[in-house]
Simulated assay, not measured.
Amino acid sequence: MRDAERPQADKVTLPLFPLQTVLLPGAVLPLHLFEPRYRQLMVDLLSGAVPERRFGIIGIKSAGVREVDSVDHLHPIGCTALLGESERLPDGRFDVVTHGERRFRLLDLDQTRAPYLIGTVEWVPDEPVPAGAEEATERLSASARSAYRRYAESAWEDETWPSPPPETPPAELGYLLAANCLLPLPDRQRLLEETHPLRRLRAVNKLLSREAGFLAALNAVPAPPPEVPHLTTRACLN
């Protein structure tokens, strides 16, 4: 569901899962949860104590932060995650799959209400695409898709890589094109924070063209940085 279709509220509260990665709307993020407080978060999500199986994923600014206790430790914009498939292991750990939904701006943290952090947040909608921008939208969408194809052809031998359907709205297209690509954390955070769909498409085109050039020159897929989970394995980030 898009931002414009959701009921708006000035402020809401969300359970938070700070990570050294960035979840984009529309992206899929698998997680392996072993820390007691995040096991409890999963229990609360699955039992309905936290409604709608939703929580917030937000990036930690520095890998040197061991314990988040201030909004200053976190990026200002995060993304809600919808809990999908889940498996509780015999020792109490969880393997889960989450799906990125909508952006929020973190306003405040509560460290006392639950074993995990609770954030006070406000939603971050996109700016509207100006009337009469159909030609620019079509051109930018085509350029971003072309950059994605070049990246995919360089990164993956299998030609069955996913591609967003033709009817994908421009507000969603930039996120979906970037979702499966191994972009550095700062680039993914900038895409998450960009509120204009056309500027986001332009940025995706530039970033994926850059990465495709690197891959073509190296003739190899670079290893993902430590803060970005490998896309074919469960992430262990808590």
Rank of each mutant, 00 (worst) to 15 (best):
A81P: 11
P25N: 02
V28A: 14
K11Q: 08
L140E: 07
C236V: 11
Q111F: 01
R37P: 14
P125M: 03
L33T: 03
A142W: 04
E153W: 01
P30G: 00
F17T: 02
P25Y: 13
P25K: 09
L45V: 07
S141R: 12
V129W: 10
L41A: 06
A223I: 00
A147Q: 06
A142H: 09
S47M: 09
V65R: 02
A81M: 06
A212L: 07
P15W: 00
T13Q: 13
P225F: 08
Q20P: 07
A178C: 11
S163V: 12
P30R: 00
P90N: 12
P115R: 02
L231S: 08
R102L: 13
A223N: 10
T137S: 15
A147P: 13
F214C: 07
T21S: 11
V121P: 05
K61P: 00
H99T: 12
D158E: 03
L46G: 08
L14N: 02
C236M: 10
S209V: 09
G78S: 02
E67I: 11
P229S: 05
L14A: 10
V96L: 10
A9I: 09
A171K: 03
L207R: 08
G48P: 12
E127R: 13
V228F: 03
P197G: 09
D3P: 15
R102K: 09
E211P: 03
V65M: 02
E101H: 04
T137H: 05
T21H: 02
D95H: 14
L89F: 14
P51I: 04
N238R: 02
G132T: 12
D91L: 09
L41C: 07
D72A: 15
N205T: 15
G84V: 05
Y116L: 03
T80G: 14
P165V: 13
A179V: 05
L83N: 08
D187K: 12
R53F: 04
R102P: 00
L14T: 02
V50Y: 08
D10F: 05
L19H: 05
W161M: 00
L109M: 11
N205Q: 15
I58M: 12
P197L: 12
A152W: 07
A133N: 08
E153Y: 06
D108C: 00
S146Q: 13
D126I: 01
D110L: 09
V68Y: 03
T195M: 11
P125Q: 03
H32C: 01
T21R: 01
I58E: 08
R66N: 14
L207G: 07
G59D: 00
A155S: 05
L74M: 02
A235P: 11
R234D: 12
A63P: 11
G64H: 06
P197Y: 07
V68D: 04
F214H: 11
T232K: 12
G26T: 04
H75C: 15
A179P: 11
L31R: 07
P229Q: 05
L19V: 15
H196S: 14
W161D: 01
